[in-house]
Amino acid sequence: MGVSTRFFFLLLLHSGTCFRRPQLILREIFSSGVLSLIIILVSGLFVGMVLGMQGYETLQTYGSEEALGVLVSLSLVRELGPVVAALLFASRAGSAITAEIGLMKATEQLAAMEMMAVDPLARVVAPRFWGGVISMPLLAAMFSAMGIFGGYLVGVVLIGVDEGSFWSQMQAAVDIREDILNGVIKSTVFGIAVTVIALFEGYDAPPTAEGVSRATTRTVVTSSLAILMLDFVLTAFMFRGV
Protein backbone atom coordinates (compact mmCIF):
# COMPACT_ATOMS: atom_id res chain seq x y z
CA MET A 1 0.00 0.00 0.00
CA GLY A 2 2.72 2.43 1.00
CA VAL A 3 4.81 1.42 -1.98
CA SER A 4 1.93 1.85 -4.38
CA THR A 5 1.16 5.29 -2.98
CA ARG A 6 4.78 6.27 -3.53
CA PHE A 7 4.48 4.83 -7.02
CA PHE A 8 1.39 6.96 -7.63
CA PHE A 9 3.21 10.16 -6.68
CA LEU A 10 6.27 9.25 -8.74
CA LEU A 11 3.92 8.69 -11.64
CA LEU A 12 2.31 12.11 -11.26
CA LEU A 13 5.77 13.61 -11.01
CA HIS A 14 6.79 12.01 -14.30
CA SER A 15 3.68 13.06 -16.19
CA GLY A 16 5.27 16.15 -17.68
CA THR A 17 6.72 14.36 -20.69
CA CYS A 18 3.47 12.84 -21.82
CA PHE A 19 1.63 16.16 -21.63
CA ARG A 20 4.21 17.61 -23.96
CA ARG A 21 3.55 14.70 -26.29
CA PRO A 22 -0.23 14.13 -26.38
CA GLN A 23 0.27 11.51 -29.08
CA LEU A 24 1.45 9.13 -26.36
CA ILE A 25 -1.76 9.60 -24.37
CA LEU A 26 -3.93 9.30 -27.48
CA ARG A 27 -2.38 5.90 -28.13
CA GLU A 28 -3.30 4.74 -24.65
CA ILE A 29 -6.83 6.12 -24.84
CA PHE A 30 -7.09 3.97 -27.92
CA SER A 31 -5.86 0.79 -26.25
CA SER A 32 -7.73 1.16 -22.97
CA GLY A 33 -10.78 3.15 -24.09
CA VAL A 34 -11.60 2.34 -27.68
CA LEU A 35 -10.80 -1.34 -27.29
CA SER A 36 -13.15 -1.58 -24.27
CA LEU A 37 -15.94 0.09 -26.21
CA ILE A 38 -17.73 -3.03 -27.45
CA ILE A 39 -17.86 -4.81 -24.10
CA ILE A 40 -19.05 -1.62 -22.35
CA LEU A 41 -21.79 -0.82 -24.86
CA VAL A 42 -23.12 -4.38 -25.09
CA SER A 43 -23.08 -4.94 -21.32
CA GLY A 44 -24.70 -1.55 -20.73
CA LEU A 45 -27.51 -2.39 -23.11
CA PHE A 46 -28.20 -5.75 -21.47
CA VAL A 47 -27.95 -4.46 -17.91
CA GLY A 48 -30.45 -1.75 -18.83
CA MET A 49 -32.81 -4.23 -20.45
CA VAL A 50 -32.72 -6.49 -17.39
CA LEU A 51 -33.32 -3.49 -15.15
CA GLY A 52 -36.29 -2.57 -17.32
CA MET A 53 -37.80 -6.01 -16.94
CA GLN A 54 -37.10 -6.54 -13.26
CA GLY A 55 -38.06 -2.99 -12.38
CA TYR A 56 -41.35 -3.32 -14.21
CA GLU A 57 -42.17 -6.53 -12.33
CA THR A 58 -41.57 -4.86 -8.99
CA LEU A 59 -43.15 -1.48 -9.74
CA GLN A 60 -46.23 -3.12 -11.22
CA THR A 61 -47.21 -4.53 -7.84
CA TYR A 62 -47.38 -0.96 -6.49
CA GLY A 63 -49.12 0.30 -9.59
CA SER A 64 -46.37 2.75 -10.37
CA GLU A 65 -45.00 1.53 -13.68
CA GLU A 66 -44.46 5.13 -14.81
CA ALA A 67 -41.60 5.33 -12.31
CA LEU A 68 -39.68 2.80 -14.40
CA GLY A 69 -37.64 5.55 -16.02
CA VAL A 70 -36.67 6.85 -12.59
CA LEU A 71 -35.63 3.44 -11.36
CA VAL A 72 -33.58 2.57 -14.42
CA SER A 73 -31.86 5.92 -14.72
CA LEU A 74 -31.08 6.45 -11.05
CA SER A 75 -29.68 2.97 -10.51
CA LEU A 76 -27.54 3.31 -13.62
CA VAL A 77 -26.30 6.86 -13.18
CA ARG A 78 -25.62 6.58 -9.47
CA GLU A 79 -24.36 3.04 -9.06
CA LEU A 80 -24.40 0.50 -11.83
CA GLY A 81 -22.91 2.72 -14.53
CA PRO A 82 -19.73 3.70 -12.70
CA VAL A 83 -19.32 0.41 -10.81
CA VAL A 84 -20.06 -2.15 -13.52
CA ALA A 85 -18.21 -0.15 -16.16
CA ALA A 86 -15.21 0.05 -13.82
CA LEU A 87 -15.33 -3.69 -13.12
CA LEU A 88 -15.42 -4.41 -16.84
CA PHE A 89 -12.65 -1.87 -17.40
CA ALA A 90 -10.51 -3.58 -14.76
CA SER A 91 -10.82 -6.96 -16.40
CA ARG A 92 -10.52 -5.72 -19.98
CA ALA A 93 -8.07 -2.82 -19.88
CA GLY A 94 -6.50 -3.25 -16.42
CA SER A 95 -5.38 -6.81 -17.03
CA ALA A 96 -4.05 -5.82 -20.47
CA ILE A 97 -2.01 -3.00 -18.94
CA THR A 98 -0.51 -5.30 -16.29
CA ALA A 99 0.31 -8.01 -18.80
CA GLU A 100 1.86 -5.55 -21.23
CA ILE A 101 4.06 -3.82 -18.67
CA GLY A 102 4.95 -7.10 -16.98
CA LEU A 103 6.06 -8.54 -20.32
CA MET A 104 8.02 -5.41 -21.17
CA LYS A 105 9.81 -5.87 -17.89
CA ALA A 106 10.34 -9.61 -18.35
CA THR A 107 11.82 -9.14 -21.82
CA GLU A 108 14.10 -6.36 -20.54
CA GLN A 109 12.35 -3.74 -22.67
CA LEU A 110 12.07 -1.42 -19.68
CA ALA A 111 15.73 -1.99 -18.81
CA ALA A 112 16.67 -1.31 -22.42
CA MET A 113 14.72 1.93 -22.29
CA GLU A 114 16.56 2.96 -19.16
CA MET A 115 19.83 2.12 -20.84
CA MET A 116 18.81 4.49 -23.63
CA ALA A 117 18.40 7.16 -20.97
CA VAL A 118 14.62 7.14 -21.40
CA ASP A 119 12.66 6.99 -18.16
CA PRO A 120 10.09 4.17 -18.41
CA LEU A 121 7.90 5.89 -15.83
CA ALA A 122 7.58 8.93 -18.06
CA ARG A 123 7.50 7.11 -21.40
CA VAL A 124 5.51 3.96 -20.64
CA VAL A 125 3.70 4.25 -17.33
CA ALA A 126 2.43 7.83 -17.17
CA PRO A 127 0.71 7.86 -20.61
CA ARG A 128 -1.13 4.66 -19.72
CA PHE A 129 -2.28 6.24 -16.48
CA TRP A 130 -3.72 9.32 -18.15
CA GLY A 131 -5.20 7.27 -20.97
CA GLY A 132 -7.07 5.16 -18.43
CA VAL A 133 -8.17 8.09 -16.28
CA ILE A 134 -9.57 9.93 -19.29
CA SER A 135 -11.28 6.85 -20.75
CA MET A 136 -13.01 5.63 -17.60
CA PRO A 137 -15.64 8.39 -17.05
CA LEU A 138 -16.43 8.43 -20.76
CA LEU A 139 -16.94 4.68 -20.75
CA ALA A 140 -19.13 4.88 -17.64
CA ALA A 141 -21.27 7.60 -19.23
CA MET A 142 -21.67 5.50 -22.36
CA PHE A 143 -22.58 2.50 -20.22
CA SER A 144 -25.30 4.49 -18.41
CA ALA A 145 -26.65 6.02 -21.60
CA MET A 146 -26.74 2.63 -23.28
CA GLY A 147 -28.42 1.13 -20.20
CA ILE A 148 -31.13 3.79 -20.14
CA PHE A 149 -31.71 3.12 -23.82
CA GLY A 150 -31.97 -0.60 -22.99
CA GLY A 151 -34.48 0.11 -20.23
CA TYR A 152 -36.44 2.26 -22.66
CA LEU A 153 -36.43 -0.53 -25.25
CA VAL A 154 -37.80 -3.09 -22.82
CA GLY A 155 -40.04 -0.79 -20.78
CA VAL A 156 -41.56 1.42 -23.43
CA VAL A 157 -41.18 -0.37 -26.73
CA LEU A 158 -41.66 -3.93 -25.53
CA ILE A 159 -43.90 -3.76 -22.43
CA GLY A 160 -45.68 -0.55 -23.28
CA VAL A 161 -45.05 1.82 -20.38
CA ASP A 162 -46.11 5.33 -21.34
CA GLU A 163 -43.23 7.02 -23.13
CA GLY A 164 -44.01 10.51 -21.84
CA SER A 165 -44.04 9.56 -18.20
CA PHE A 166 -40.95 7.38 -18.65
CA TRP A 167 -38.88 10.39 -19.72
CA SER A 168 -40.55 13.18 -17.74
CA GLN A 169 -40.52 11.35 -14.42
CA MET A 170 -36.89 10.51 -15.07
CA GLN A 171 -36.07 14.14 -15.75
CA ALA A 172 -37.88 15.25 -12.64
CA ALA A 173 -36.04 12.80 -10.41
CA VAL A 174 -32.48 12.82 -11.74
CA ASP A 175 -30.44 15.75 -10.53
CA ILE A 176 -27.59 16.97 -12.67
CA ARG A 177 -25.25 17.71 -9.79
CA GLU A 178 -26.19 15.16 -7.18
CA ASP A 179 -26.68 12.24 -9.49
CA ILE A 180 -24.89 12.75 -12.77
CA LEU A 181 -21.89 14.72 -11.54
CA ASN A 182 -21.44 12.37 -8.60
CA GLY A 183 -21.53 9.46 -11.02
CA VAL A 184 -18.79 11.10 -13.09
CA ILE A 185 -16.72 11.72 -9.94
CA LYS A 186 -17.13 8.10 -8.92
CA SER A 187 -16.04 6.77 -12.29
CA THR A 188 -13.02 9.10 -12.36
CA VAL A 189 -11.92 7.85 -8.94
CA PHE A 190 -12.42 4.25 -10.08
CA GLY A 191 -10.41 5.00 -13.21
CA ILE A 192 -7.52 6.30 -11.11
CA ALA A 193 -7.69 3.30 -8.79
CA VAL A 194 -7.84 0.67 -11.53
CA THR A 195 -5.04 2.11 -13.66
CA VAL A 196 -2.72 2.71 -10.70
CA ILE A 197 -3.26 -0.84 -9.48
CA ALA A 198 -2.78 -2.27 -12.97
CA LEU A 199 0.36 -0.24 -13.63
CA PHE A 200 1.84 -0.98 -10.24
CA GLU A 201 1.20 -4.71 -10.49
CA GLY A 202 2.81 -4.79 -13.92
CA TYR A 203 5.78 -2.70 -12.89
CA ASP A 204 6.25 -4.72 -9.73
CA ALA A 205 5.75 -8.17 -11.28
CA PRO A 206 8.57 -10.71 -11.08
CA PRO A 207 10.08 -10.79 -14.58
CA THR A 208 8.96 -14.33 -15.38
CA ALA A 209 6.02 -15.79 -17.27
CA GLU A 210 4.57 -17.05 -14.01
CA GLY A 211 5.07 -13.71 -12.28
CA VAL A 212 3.30 -11.82 -15.05
CA SER A 213 0.32 -14.15 -15.12
CA ARG A 214 -0.04 -13.91 -11.35
CA ALA A 215 0.22 -10.14 -11.45
CA THR A 216 -2.53 -10.03 -14.07
CA THR A 217 -4.86 -12.04 -11.87
CA ARG A 218 -4.00 -9.85 -8.90
CA THR A 219 -4.84 -6.74 -10.88
CA VAL A 220 -8.36 -7.95 -11.58
CA VAL A 221 -8.97 -9.14 -8.01
CA THR A 222 -7.43 -6.13 -6.24
CA SER A 223 -9.01 -3.53 -8.46
CA SER A 224 -12.47 -5.16 -8.23
CA LEU A 225 -12.23 -5.07 -4.45
CA ALA A 226 -10.94 -1.51 -4.56
CA ILE A 227 -13.84 -0.43 -6.78
CA LEU A 228 -16.47 -1.90 -4.47
CA MET A 229 -14.87 -0.49 -1.31
CA LEU A 230 -14.33 2.94 -2.82
CA ASP A 231 -17.92 2.87 -4.03
CA PHE A 232 -19.11 2.44 -0.46
CA VAL A 233 -16.88 5.23 0.81
CA LEU A 234 -17.87 7.63 -1.97
CA THR A 235 -21.57 6.82 -1.65
CA ALA A 236 -21.36 7.44 2.10
CA PHE A 237 -19.81 10.83 1.39
CA MET A 238 -22.37 11.78 -1.22
CA PHE A 239 -25.33 10.49 0.75
CA ARG A 240 -27.35 13.37 2.11
CA GLY A 241 -30.43 11.70 3.49
CA VAL A 242 -32.55 14.71 2.59
Binding site: L26, R27, I29, F30, G33, V34, L37, S73, V77, S135, P137, L138, L139, A141, M142, S144, A145, M146, I148, W167, M170, Q171, A172, V174, D175, I176, D179, I180, G183, V184
Partner: peptide, 27 residues
Protein backbone atom coordinates in the same frame (compact mmCIF):
# COMPACT_ATOMS: atom_id res chain seq x y z
CA UNK B 1 -6.42 5.42 -37.58
CA UNK B 2 -5.69 5.78 -33.89
CA UNK B 3 -6.41 9.50 -33.99
CA UNK B 4 -9.68 8.86 -35.80
CA UNK B 5 -10.84 6.20 -33.36
CA UNK B 6 -9.89 8.22 -30.30
CA UNK B 7 -11.81 11.14 -31.80
CA UNK B 8 -14.88 8.96 -32.31
CA UNK B 9 -14.50 7.56 -28.81
CA UNK B 10 -14.26 10.93 -27.10
CA UNK B 11 -17.16 12.27 -29.17
CA UNK B 12 -19.30 9.31 -28.14
CA UNK B 13 -18.36 9.81 -24.50
CA UNK B 14 -19.26 13.47 -24.58
CA UNK B 15 -22.48 12.69 -26.43
CA UNK B 16 -23.37 10.19 -23.70
CA UNK B 17 -22.66 12.79 -21.00
CA UNK B 18 -24.78 15.35 -22.82
CA UNK B 19 -27.56 12.81 -23.21
CA UNK B 20 -27.46 12.15 -19.47
CA UNK B 21 -27.37 15.84 -18.65
CA UNK B 22 -30.06 17.04 -21.05
CA UNK B 23 -32.39 14.16 -21.65
CA UNK B 24 -32.12 12.36 -18.32
CA UNK B 25 -31.23 15.10 -15.86
CA UNK B 26 -33.25 18.19 -15.11
CA UNK B 27 -30.93 20.79 -16.52
Amino acid sequence: TIDLWVGVFVAMGIAALLFLALKVGNI
